[in-house]
Nucleic acid binder design. Structure first.
Length: 286
DNA sequence: CCGCAGTAAGGCATCTCTCG
DNA sequence: CGAGAGATGCCTTACTGCGG
């Protein structure tokens, strides 16, 4: 026999669940945020984790529902071959193309257009590469938990070449909308990212620090794990990190320092929107 | 542990050629 | 001219070995 209290508790739990579902439904109906042509809008979870890692070319390690290192607050599991910064280029390009439509809609784009949006030159090797990225992004599984919101599925629902139409057909998962909710996404300067081409670690750092208006110091070891670097020795990674930070500074003007405690400091000039955000909570000091 | 130089191997840009 | 195939060669990463 249930007590009145138990019944009440069950009822309130049910209501909470319903509210959560309602919230999710609401988010799914919101339009995709719009960002200017010069940036790429990317969910923070993709930039604050090793999901798209700073890994070297060559054979990719296969992951099976493995927990991906990420900043606190995100839980990410991934199944499939490791994703790299080039895969991120394409995913960003797809989101970019989709941003003016409601997610879930079909995108049709030529090989040429996709390669251009991803910052690649058009040629035999580029087209072959695009095929392999399409296979990776559509055939792998990501599970993301953040803020009571769950996302599960592939990064791209459909991604195939329609030989008759002579173009690619892409269908994004409508639930991707959840990853853009609560302003939990970042505008990444595309021109800066392109300057860091072929330098996975510098690209990863650029994405990571783009998500922070005022970066906080992190240990070299933490960055090693967060970036998904496969360097086996930490001092090797430290050397790579130094080079990458120097490239990053050249491309963005963000200053860097590794102090005696092995803490990495990055100083940056906040973007206008980040500056507004920073000035909000605190009263201006005088 | 750390820095530097050298190495291997693969990613990627680019060039040329062919075909319609 | 434009699209695509194939070949070539540069550039990068991460590892190794040596000396401090």
């Amino acid at each position: 026999m249930q007590s009145t209290l138990e019944r009440l508790q069950a009822l309130s739990a049910e209501r909470a669940k319903a509210r959560e579902a309602e919230k999710t439904a609401k988010i799914l109906q919101m339009p995709m945020p719009v960002w200017p042509e010069s940036v790429r809008g990317v969910p923070n979870v993709a930039l604050r984790s090793a999901l798209f890692g700073a890994i070297k070319r060559g054979p990719r390690r296969y992951m099976d529902r493995e927990l991906v290192t990420s900043l606190e607050g995100y839980e990410v599991r991934y199944t499939g071959p490791r994703l790299d910064q080039s895969d991120l280029d394409v995913w960003e390009a797809l989101l970019h193309l989709a941003r003016r439509q409601a997610l879930g809609n079909r995108i049709e784009a030529s090989e040429r257009q996709l390669l251009k949006e991803a910052g690649r030159s058009y040629g035999k090797s580029g087209r072959e590469w695009l095929k392999s990225v399409a296979a990776r992004l559509s055939a792998t599984t990501v599970e993301i938990q953040h803020d009571h919101q769950n996302y599960g599925g592939s990064l791209v629902d459909e991604f195939y070449r329609d030989d008759i139409a002579g173009c690619y057909v892409i269908e994004l998962n409508p639930r991707l909308q959840l990853l853009f909710a609560h302003e939990d996404w970042t505008q990444v300067e595309w021109e800066q990212r392109q300057k860091l081409k072929r330098q996975p670690l510098a690209q990863w750092l650029h994405g990571f620090y783009s998500t922070h208006a005022r970066p906080f110091p992190l240990k070299v070891k933490t960055l090693h794990q967060l970036s998904g670097s496969e360097a086996k020795q930490l001092y090797h990674f430290r050397a790579e990190l130094r080079d990458a930070l120097a490239c990053l500074e050249e491309a963005t003007g963000w200053t860097h320092e590794i102090d005696t405690n092995d803490l990495v400091h990055v100083g940056k000039i906040p973007t206008p929107s980040q500056a507004r955000y920073l000035s909000k909570p605190k009263q201006p000091k005088k």
